[in-house]
Design a protein around this nucleic acid. Sequence first.
DNA 1: CTGTTAGCGCTTTCAT
DNA 2: ATGAAAGCGCTAACAG
Lengths: 349, 349
Amino acid sequence: MKKNITIYDIAKEANVSPSTVSRVLTGNERVKPVTKQKVDAIIEKYNFRPNSLARSLLYKQSKMIGIILPDINHPFFSTLVQKSEAHALSLGYTSFLCNSMNDTDVESTYLQNLIDKQVDGILFLGGRINQVATDPKLAEEMNRIMDRVPVVFVNGEMAGVDAHVIQTDEKEGITNVIDLLHNLNHQRIAFLGGEQGVTSREVKVNAFKEALARHHLPIHEQWIMNEGFDIESGEELANHLLYLNEKPTAIVCVNDFVAIGVIKTLNKFGIRVPEDISVVGFDDIYLAKDFPPGITSVSQNYEELGKTAVDVLVKLINGESAKKKSTVPTKLQLRNSCQLAKREEVDKE
Amino acid sequence: MKKNITIYDIAKEANVSPSTVSRVLTGNERVKPVTKQKVDAIIEKYNFRPNSLARSLLYKQSKMIGIILPDINHPFFSTLVQKSEAHALSLGYTSFLCNSMNDTDVESTYLQNLIDKQVDGILFLGGRINQVATDPKLAEEMNRIMDRVPVVFVNGEMAGVDAHVIQTDEKEGITNVIDLLHNLNHQRIAFLGGEQGVTSREVKVNAFKEALARHHLPIHEQWIMNEGFDIESGEELANHLLYLNEKPTAIVCVNDFVAIGVIKTLNKFGIRVPEDISVVGFDDIYLAKDFPPGITSVSQNYEELGKTAVDVLVKLINGESAKKKSTVPTKLQLRNSCQLAKREEVDKE
DNA sequence: CTGTTAGCGCTTTCAT
DNA sequence: ATGAAAGCGCTAACAG
C-alpha cells in the first residue's frame, strides 16, 4: 500500500509552500498561473487527493449525512433511500445508510455513531418515529441528538420532539381509495394489515373509517384487522377473514406487501381477484404492477418525498429556516385488482 | 445548535489536562480511579463524545468501509448489502453504501469520494466488475484505487486487476438446475435473460450448455436469448419464445426477476406453470416463494457471501493475508414452478 | 502572489 | 499518575 501522500510532499517537490498547494486545491485565492501548473502537474503525477477528514476537522462540516431506515429490503424504503441518496449527492453530500432492522437499540447505536462521525445532518425513517405512543427515553435521546445536528423525520413523528417532518399524505391516499371503491359500488369494505400503535397504520385506519362514514357505508370492526406489514401478515389476515361468515367485497391493505399476501391466500381458496373480491394496496412498489392481476395501489411520490426531505435537511444544515411540516401528495394508480362490485353483493346490503 | 464540546472543555472543568481526559476515553493507560470518576461524570454531564474525525486523522484509519453496488432496489443486492453491513458493524466498521445505478461514471465518482473520505477498504459489487470484456480505463482506475486501499470484489472480476474475489458458485447452481430438470424428464430446455457480455449471464450460459451436453440433451441456440435482468426482460423474452414454433418444456432464467416476467407472459397466453412449462429462477429473492406458483430457484447464500466478503476485506485492512478467491456454494430451493415433463412432450423428441 | 504560523480535536511520547 | 508538547493533513489569516 502506497504511503499516504500529503500537500507537504507535493509542496516539497514543487518547491512551494504547503499553503500554495492548498490554494491551488481550493481555488479560493489567486496563484500565479505558472506556479499553479507546476503544482497541478505534480498533483496529477501522484494522483493526489486532499484528505477530506482533515478538511472536515477544520471546516467543522463533513459533507456527510446519515440516513437511518428500518429495512433496506423493503421496496418502499429502498426506493425512497435511493432517491434521497442521489439528490444528496447532487448537493455534495455523501450518505451513510444505516439499517436498523426496526430495532431501537440499533437505531441508538447508529445515532451515536453518526454523531461521532460528525455527520452534518440526519434523515430518520420508520422505527421509533412511527410509534403512536412515543417512548420518552427514545424521545429524550432524539432531542439530545438534535441538540447537535439537524434531524428530519420522513413519515413519522415523536411526541415531545420538535423535528422537521416530511409526510406522505396517507389520509388523502386512503380517502381516494374509498371514493374509488364507493364509485365501484362496493359497500362492504375491509381494512387489513399493519401493527397497532404504528402510525402509518393508525392514520390509514382513521382515514378509512372517516371515508366510510362520509359515504354512509357500514364499518365492520371485525373486518379491520392488524398483524404486520409483510406478505405473511397479509396471508394470515386473509385466512382470518375467510373464517367469518360475512365477507367483504373489497379489501383495502395497509401496503402492497400485505395486498400480495391477501391475494395469494384468496387465490388459494379459489376466490378470484378482482372478480370475487377487489383488493387495493399502498405504496405502489415496483412489484404492484407485476404481481397478478396487477395491484391497484396508492403511489407514493418517492422522488419528491426524498428530494424534499434532503432539501429541508440541507437548509437546516446551512442554518436557513425551513417549513416545519411538508406534505407530499399521493396518486392513485389504477390496475386490475379492483372492479365493480358484483350485483348480488350490492343487493345483499 | 450546541457548541461542539471538546476534551479541552472537559479537561478544564475537571481541572485535569486534556491528556488525562484522553486516557480516560481510550482506557489505554492507567488513571487514578478518583480522577477517572471525576472526568467520567463531566463527560456524562455534557454527553460528550470524542470527534471520530480527529481520531481517524491521527490513527490513519477511519473504521469506515465503502460498499459500491449497482442497484439497491434489487433484492439480491439489498439482501446481500444488509448482511454485509451488519457484519461490518459487528466488527466496528461503518459502511458507506454507494448506489451506482450501474453507471460507471457514478462508480468513479464514488470511488474517488470514498478515497477522499479515507475509508479503510471497499467492497465492490456489480457494474464494471461484471463485464466479460474489461474496459482498460476502468481497470486502470481500479488499480489506482487499490494502491491506496484494499478492495474486494463480490461476484465479479476485471482483467488486469488482481483483486480478492468472493464468488457465488453460479456454475454449480446452474448445473444442479439442469440435473433436476433432467431427472424430471425435460429434454427441451431454454435459457432466458441477462445481458451479453455480463459475466453473471455468461457463466450461467456456459454452465447451462455444458450440463446439457453432459446429459446428451440438445442445445437449441434460438432458445438461448438475452435482453436484461429485470422483469420486463423476462416478459419480452417469453414473448419471443412463443413466436417460435418449437417450444421448450422448461425454461431456466438468469435470475428470479426474469423468471417472474416469463411466468407473467406465459400465463397471459394461457400457458400454465408448471403444468405446461416448468420455470426455474436464480437468486432465491424473497419474492420467489410468494410469486405464484412459487418459483424454484437457486439460493444464494447471502449471509455467507456477505460475511466472507467483509471478513476478507477486514483481513486485508489489517495487513493480514487472505484467500485470493473464495467460492460460496448455492442451494437449490425447490418450489412449485417445476414438475415432471408431460408425457407427450417427452415422446416428441 | 507566496511563505509562515496557528489551530481544527485528538492521542501519545516524554518528562515530571 | 499526570502534564506539556508535538503532530495527524489541511486551510486561513497575517505578513511580506
